[in-house]
Design a protein around this nucleic acid. Sequence first.
DNA 1: CTGAAAGCGCTAACAT
DNA 2: ATGTTAGCGCTTTCAG
Lengths: 341, 341
Amino acid sequence: MRGRNPFDGKPHLTLRDVAEAAGVSEMTVSRVLRNRDDVSAGTRKRVFEAARRLGYVPNKIAGALASSRVNLVGVIIPSLSNMVFPDVLAGIGDILDETPLQPVVGTSKYDPEREERVIYEMLSWRPSGLIVAGLEHTEASRAMMRAAGIPVIEVMDLDGDPVAAAVGISHVDAGRETAREIAARGYTRIGYLGASNFADHRAHKRLKGFEEGLAEAGLTLADRILYDGASGFGTGRRITEALLSRTPDLDFLYYNTDMNAAGGLLYCLAKGMRIPDDIGLAGFNSFEMLEGLPMRIATMDSRRRDIGRSAAELVQAGELTEEKLSLDPVFLPGDTIRARP
Amino acid sequence: MRGRNPFDGKPHLTLRDVAEAAGVSEMTVSRVLRNRDDVSAGTRKRVFEAARRLGYVPNKIAGALASSRVNLVGVIIPSLSNMVFPDVLAGIGDILDETPLQPVVGTSKYDPEREERVIYEMLSWRPSGLIVAGLEHTEASRAMMRAAGIPVIEVMDLDGDPVAAAVGISHVDAGRETAREIAARGYTRIGYLGASNFADHRAHKRLKGFEEGLAEAGLTLADRILYDGASGFGTGRRITEALLSRTPDLDFLYYNTDMNAAGGLLYCLAKGMRIPDDIGLAGFNSFEMLEGLPMRIATMDSRRRDIGRSAAELVQAGELTEEKLSLDPVFLPGDTIRARP
DNA sequence: CTGAAAGCGCTAACAT
DNA sequence: ATGTTAGCGCTTTCAG
């Protein structure tokens, strides 16, 4: 059974097979296949042909062990269904596609214990770098990342204490800034609509900053509602209806994410409310796919793709950097908030 | 430099380090860390403690090479931003989470050459299985998959010639079935709205089946419009407006995906059209996040999560199966199509 | 229950 | 420009 795939009697081809077929040494085959330029054109051609004909696929496991070089970058995010994370991945891809590095994605499902296991699994492949969403990890996770001896970049959040490098926005600032924009436009009866998910630290930070921003203007949150489950139009609708039936005199609704704000928008429009005069709405994230709703929702661009790009650049540089890179979220007033007086 | 990480002067810990610290042989450490039950409780405890204290993380590269066992499953999909693919991944995760197998995702960006490179990269890690979206691949890709000696599952599509096993729906049938539902409700002036993306084979197959289904009822497509770029509400709006201004007397709009249908729905509602009496709409995919629109769009559930689950089960079984598993897409009439007479 | 020896398939380093 | 040798860090196999 040794040297064979467990599912098949046929052993994998090795360098030796190609070497014999081409009439050269294993070492020469290895050089050709790694595109080194110290092989004569004729030999190179013979080797390529032999490899092609046999259908040889190199064994990276062996190569990585021999060279202690692994061209993988671990990327750990909470989920793939949240839309914000694929955007970060796209940014990472923009950069890594131009390099030999390859991202390998793992998901934590917002569970720190699960994240710890994923980090452990990832590190056991000895990747060239690690990109992890968020700053909140178990102590064991932090210890592993510190000891990994590779570039470790925490992304999306800057409010906290990164293990090493970090790229992101301050969600506290984002929330505060949104509150200022709202207060500056004369709204006073403000409600918050968000997820009860205890582990969504970034949303909690935005809310914290939001309340600080309101306080600056002498305001407090008039009401808030939390939901379980996934964000979406239906969720946005339901929580909006529930909140407004409880506190009908709200004049502004601040959502944890544009997805819910979109549902809220559709609800308010259906009820004939006048937006943005009677009631204003704002979300967070700036999702491109929502362009095309009846009104553009006021939101803050969370710079997800840029975050992915910058993180990948830091990994690619290969240094054990502790750089903190703060991107500025951009407030986009859209149509669901009054003009500034 | 050998045996060290290129970014760090400090070499990684090895089994030997743990063995010395615990006062046992490397072999014993290896046994403990793989949770084999042929080690005495006392030794086991000493080893675990030493490993913890040192912060040892095993090297899977070496382990995989020695054992020729790699607990990775390659998953190759066109993109992560399309929403349909994360759903397939979620289904795969449902199953693999209960096993030692771990999915590794690669994206082809709808480019067969790129897909070929990704398949090659994946196979060079000697994974335990491969799950690939679609049936259209380069000849070289097909040859690699045939020769891989591992379970290879093509997913999402059954109209074509799979390399080995396949799990999915027939998109031709899905299109034909949708056409029948529309024709049975008395619509006659039918338009199609889809992507020009040459490489979206499944959408083309749906359109083919759709036209066949119309033909059965003595109908033909009254007009069609193709767009470049991403699907979304804005896109749906724009193509709907363009198509209706060109052919105003259409009484049904069939979209390649619910995302565009949603934009079309919002457009038609804004224009005061009476849905589903004056004009009907249907999409494809059944996206959960769209629940909550003003009307539920008629659509067909593409069974994405089930497809992921079944594919993962086949991989996990570990046999070189050639099974073809056909799931039935389900037509969901929603509110945008008239009741059957 | 524990250890010693051999080798997985490749590449670094040193020949020639 | 090509070949030879010695491992990479682990697991398999066989001995005790």
